[in-house]
């Protein structure tokens, strides 16, 4: 079996526990001064990559784990986090603060990166929790002409470059098998990401972080979707509380729900 060269795309997003606020101009969600962290699904990708190495899950072993992120200077923080969790090195595709890429552009970027890095496994999160598009991994697989296994809850390596993936689907799970090279996207159930320990955070500072630009990949930030406006969702008013079960049944009948 080929040794694995894993590419792990990660995205810096508003922390999952923060309630996003739409800005006053209704052009976007307020990001200035808001806590950011690694997209939770991407933490699962990094964790899975590191586990494949540590637990010797792949017969051919793991040769390289490279994290990559396109984003503002602060995206380096999450690349350092990925390295503190066990990635070997990182590539930062530098963008201006506030500049965003659409999934199709990210997929084009990752295609070139995967080719340059001679990756044979790309593990991405199934969606980013800011844009909620759930597209990049599938687009990447399409552009590369590779098989894809999305919403993975289990990844197992067999002989002859074969990889068996259990996928979370509507109503249960489905198992598919493909050969490397392969694109996998992570579901919540795949693993439990570790916390980066202080010694590992210190070590990660010495790991290699290459800086590149979109132009280095022969791309520009072409937008196919223009955001016309971003608004708050219609507020829902709590209807108050009832004293007992009879009150509950009565109110539900009144609301026509029973």
């Amino acid at each position: 079996m080929s040794a694995l060269r894993i590419l792990v795309p990660v995205k810096r997003v508003i922390d999952y526990a923060v309630k996003p606020r739409v800005n006053r101009a209704q052009t976007a969600v307020e990001t200035a001064g808001v806590k950011h962290s690694m997209n939770p699904f991407d933490e699962l990708s990094v964790e899975e990559s590191v586990r494949i190495r540590e637990k010797k899950l792949a017969p051919g072993g793991v040769e390289d784990i490279c994290a990559i992120s396109a984003g503002p200077p602060k995206a380096q923080d999450i690349l350092r986090t990925a390295m503190a969790m066990g990635a070997d090195r990182a590539i930062h595709v530098e963008m201006k603060e506030g500049e965003e890429l659409e999934p199709l552009t990210v997929a084009k970027l990752l295609k070139k990166a995967a080719e340059q890095q001679k990756s044979n496994l790309v593990i991405l999160g199934k969606q980013s929790i800011d844009d909620d598009s759930a597209q990049t991994g599938q687009m990447l697989a399409g552009l590369l002409g590779w098989p894809q296994a999305t919403q993975a809850s289990k990844v197992e390596f067999g002989e002859g470059d074969s990889v068996t993936v259990t996928r979370e689907v509507d109503g249960g799970v489905e198992t598919v098998r493909a050969k490397l090279p392969l694109v996998v996207t992570t579901d919540l159930r795949l693993n439990e990401p570790r916390f980066a320990t202080l010694p590992n955070i210190m070590k990660a500072k010495k790991k290699k972080l290459d800086k590149m630009t979109l132009q280095d990949f022969g791309l520009d930030n072409e937008k196919r979707l223009k955001v016309l406006k971003v608004t708050e969702p219609a507020a829902r008013q709590g209807g108050g509380k009832v004293e007992d079960v009879d009150g509950l049944v009565g109110k539900l009948k009144e609301l026509g729900a029973l």
Binding site: I14, D130, L228, V230, T231, P233
Partner: peptide, 12 residues
């Protein structure tokens, strides 16, 4: 909807 439904985007 974006951001887990905490914002609603209109896109062209």
């Amino acid at each position: 909807p974006i951001y887990a439904g905490n914002a609603i985007a209109t896109v062209e």
